[in-house]
Amino acid sequence: MQRILVFIPIVVVAILGGFFLWGLNPDRDPNAIPSVLISKPAPQFDLGPIAGVDSPGLKTSDLAASGEPVVLNVFASWCVPCRAEHGVLTRLARDEGFDLMGINYKDKPEDARAWLEELGNPYARIGADETGRAGIEWGISGVPETFVVDGSGTVVWRYVGPIATEQSQDELRAALAEARGGAGS
């Protein structure tokens, strides 16, 4: 018994050391909010189009309608990082050949329209979420946020913040490739 007790401090130090090592890991982002949506079906929502914009509205069933993975982007005209990622998303949608779906979060229709007219409209469908209720369904903490939904309507990836850095673009491509591989098998 006494022999075993001698090792207790060593075990305690090892556990604490492991915890500190985990805490010091530079890849860990302590501010990251874990998403509960991953690997779950896309939440239920049904949004009408933005008044005066050509893109039709967006509801849950639209996401899996094509059987191909789609990218859902939550954006707003009043959100500065959204402006930064807009060009990147437009180019990615064209190069990677995915349907880009939009949720226009807590925006005034006329502001959203002017924003899309100025920067271009890469969205296949845009749902106008004027109350922010669909945003809560998606568990977003702000804009922009981007999701990948696979062909069966399951959320497979979430990104908080603008898709502007190389790293975020690579992550999006990887998530998309995985969703395509998963849907094909």
Binding site: V36, I136, G139
Partner: peptide, 8 residues
Amino acid sequence: LVEKYGDY
């Protein structure tokens, strides 16, 4: 709320 945002 937990369903949308997790235990967090």
